[in-house]
Design a protein around this nucleic acid. Structure first.
Length: 312
DNA sequence: TAAAATACCTGCAGGC
DNA sequence: TGCCTGCAGGTATTTT
C-alpha cells in the first residue's frame, strides 16, 4: 500500500526515468483512472501531448510531474543525515506556472517506466509514450483507487493538493504547528495521524508502526496527550518513515513496486502491522488486531495499553 | 464547524 | 469446483 516512503521511491524513479523527456501521446484505457479530470479522458490526452517533463515532485502521497515552461526549482535539500537520505522537499512557492500531471496511487497504483516492447500489464490504465521512442510510462492500478489528472498552471503546487500538509520528512515541516494542531483535535490519536491536513504521508501501516514505537494506543484521545508524548510520537514516525524509505518501502502482494517493478523490503521489519498473534518484538505479548475505521489496527496489549475512554 | 460514517473498487483467501 | 463473504485501505463526499 503506497504511503510516503513508497511514493517517494516512485518519485525518484520518475525523476530518473521521465524528467527531460517530451510526451508524444497519451492513451487512457480506463476512464476511472482520470475520473477527476474536469473534461474527461479526451481532454487529459490532448492537453498532455507535446509537453516536456521538467521535474518530479511530491507532497504526502500525491506526486506530480511539472511540465514544460517550468524552470527547475532551487534545491532546498539539507545535508544528508547519517541514517540515510531525507525525502525531497515539497516544491517551493512561487515557481513558474506550468501545468502539472498529478497522480495518486491509491491502494494499488503503480507508475512503471518500461520498454515499449514490454507486454501490457493486466491492469494497465494509462499509457504515456515519449518523442524519443524510449521507455514508456504506464499507470497500472488493480483496485482503481488511484487516479491522475492534468492541473493547468499547477506545476509548483497543484490545486487539488493545496490542502495537504507537509510530511514529517519535509525540511519545511512545521513541528510546532503539528503539535498545536494535534492538541486542538478532539479525536483518537490514529485518526489524527491519518488526517493528511495535519501531517501528510502517514497511512495505516506507518501509523501503527509509529504508535507501537512510541508505546501509545491508537484510541488515545488527542487532548489527553502530553506534549512530550506528542514529540516522541512525531520522532518515531520520522524514524519509521526514514527506515522504510531506506528499505525501498513496504510491499504486500506486490501491490506496491518502484518504477522499475521492484518490491520494497520493509515488510520484514514491521513490528506491529500485520502481525496479529505474533509475539511483540519488545515484550513478547501477542500482537492484537482490532477493527478500526473499516480496516485493521495492530497493537501490543502490554506496551500500548488501551485507554479507559478511548476514541475509535 | 468538526468529527464520523460511507462509497468507491478488484483480487484473493477461506468457508461451505 | 463454484459460489459467497470478508478483507485490504486512501480520499472525497455525505451525514451527524
Amino acid at each position: 500500500m503506497p504511503e510516503l516512503p513508497e511514493v517517494e521511491v516512485v518519485r525518484r524513479g520518475l525523476e530518473r526515468g521521465v524528467v527531460g523527456r517530451t510526451i508524444a501521446s497519451v492513451t487512457v484505457l480506463h476512464p476511472r483512472a482520470v475520473r477527476r479530470q474536469p473534461d474527461g479522458a479526451a481532454a487529459f490526452e490532448g492537453l498532455l501531448a507535446g509537453q516536456t517533463v521538467t521535474a518530479a515532485r511530491r507532497r504526502g502521497k500525491y506526486l506530480w510531474l511539472a511540465l514544460s515552461g517550468v524552470p527547475e526549482p532551487v534545491p532546498v535539500v539539507p545535508a544528508e543525515p547519517a541514517g540515510g537520505p531525507l525525502a525531497a522537499p515539497s516544491a517551493p512557492a512561487g515557481a513558474a506556472e506550468g501545468d502539472a500531471l498529478l497522480g495518486h496511487l491509491g491502494m494499488s497504483g503503480q507508475l512503471l517506466v518500461v520498454p515499449p516492447s514490454a507486454p501490457d500489464q493486466a491492469h494497465l490504465r494509462i499509457r504515456f509514450t515519449f518523442t524519443d521512442g524510449g521507455r514508456e510510462l504506464r499507470f497500472v492500478d488493480q483496485r482503481t483507487f488511484g487516479h491522475m489528472l492534468l492541473d493547468e498552471g499547477g506545476a509548483a503546487l497543484p490545486s487539488p493538493v493545496a490542502h495537504i500538509g507537509r510530511d514529517p520528512l519535509d525540511p519545511l515541516f512545521d513541528e510546532d504547528a503539528f503539535l498545536a494542531g494535534l492538541a486542538a483535535r478532539r479525536t483518537g490519536l490514529k485518526r489524527a495521524l491519518l488526517d493528511q491536513t495535519l501531517a501528510s504521508g502517514i497511512g495505516n501501516i506507518y501509523a501503527d508502526e509509529a504508535l507501537w514505537a512510541a508505546r501509545l494506543h491508537f484510541a488515545r484521545p488527542t487532548e489527553t496527550l502530553r506534549r512530550g508524548d506528542a514529540r516522541r510520537l512525531l520522532a518515531e514516525a520520522r524514524g519509521v518513515l526514514s527506515a522504510a524509505l531506506l528499505a525501498g518501502g513496504t510491499s504486500f502482494d506486490r501491490l506496491y513496486v518502484s518504477t522499475e517493478g521492484v518490491s520494497g523490503l520493509f515488510e520484514r521489519e514491521l513490528a506491529a502491522y500485520g502481525r496479529a498473534g505474533l509475539p511483540c518484538r519488545r515484550c513478547g505479548s501477542p500482537i492484537r488486531r482490532d477493527a478500526f475505521m473499516n480496516r485493521s489496527s495492530f497493537t501490543c496489549p502490554t506496551c500500548q495499553p488501551r485507554p479507559r475512554s478511548g476514541r475509535w
